[in-house]
């Protein structure tokens, strides 16, 4: 594949991660444990959708076939989405959603940081804007993980289980495939191995403060980046894309 094709595919993965996670967060509206958390959840989801839109728009420009952000979001099938498996898992309870969030954000923060130093001007700009938002998300999520882990016995056990269950999806974030490699070679893109170290350090810090245990490394699920998803994504997309699919060509 050409450098440009790799860049497009890479950008779409960034967009897909942000959109799929935002979609899951949006399902939690009106179901949060406290009103103040409703505001936080909506804030973060808005940030992610905003990032997705910037990445999709850029991918469309790079591709040059006139595809809009909505074409990417609503008219592609599961096998064309390159989001991480972690993000399409169903919400579960507050602890599950929180753990999913923090595991991703610790990775995303370092990824964005690396992107601000890559040679693609536009990705640098988008990343610079997104970093400010994600820094705050990570801070807020850390506060919560500590309170759940070091809260009651019940919250501690639940948080530990959430962490144990989510762990098998974390490996995928750091497995470089030919698109990641092409990004590194052609655009000074992120080095996933070094991001992995930073991520481990950050997650370990919060986990320890939360009096939780870091799960042992184990078999890691993968395939999301390559379009081989869990059964969950199909349902998520069916709901999300329904109106555009039912009324092809309509303006909303």
């Amino acid at each position: 594949m050409s450098a440009n094709q790799a860049l497009i595919a890479y950008t779409l993965r960034l967009a897909d991660n942000a959109l799929i996670l935002a979609q899951r967060m949006v399902e939690l509206v009106a179901a949060e444990p406290e009103l103040e958390e409703e505001l936080a959840n909506a804030n973060f989801a808005l940030d992610f959708i905003g990032q997705a839109r910037m990445f999709y728009t850029y991918a469309g420009e790079l591709e040059g076939q006139g595809r809009s952000e909505d074409d990417f979001a609503f008219m592609r099938d599961e096998r064309e989405f390159g989001n991480l498996l972690l993000l399409e898992q169903p919400n579960g309870h507050f602890g599950d959603a929180l753990v999913r969030q923090i595991l991703f954000e610790a990775f995303y923060l370092h990824l964005l940081e690396a992107l601000t130093r890559c040679s693609d001007q536009r990705l640098c700009e988008i990343a610079a804007r997104a970093i400010k938002e994600v820094k705050y998300h990570f801070r807020h999520s850390s506060h919560w993980l500590v309170r759940l882990g070091d809260g009651t016995e019940l919250s501690h056990n639940r948080a530990q289980t959430s962490l144990d269950d989510a762990w098998r999806y974390t490996g995928e974030m750091f497995i470089a495939d030919e698109i990641d490699t092409a990004m590194q070679e052609n655009f000074d893109g992120p080095d996933l191995a070094s991001i992995h170290e930073l991520w481990r350090r950050d997650i370990a810090t919060v986990v320890v403060e939360a009096t939780l245990q870091l799960p042992d490394d184990q078999w890691m699920a993968s395939g999301g980046k390559q379009g081989r998803h869990s059964e969950h994504l199909g349902f998520l997309l069916a709901e999300m894309q329904y109106l555009q699919r039912s009324f092809p060509g309509a303006t909303w």
Binding site: Q23, V29, E38, Y56, A73
Partner: peptide, 22 residues
């Protein structure tokens, strides 16, 4: 929210619902 027919409409609706919580 999950079925909003465009990303722009999704964002606007989410901002509105968030305002209501506020």
């Amino acid at each position: 929210l999950t079925r909003a027919p465009s990303l722009k409409r999704k964002v606007i609706l989410l901002a509105k619902v968030q305002d209501e919580a506020g």
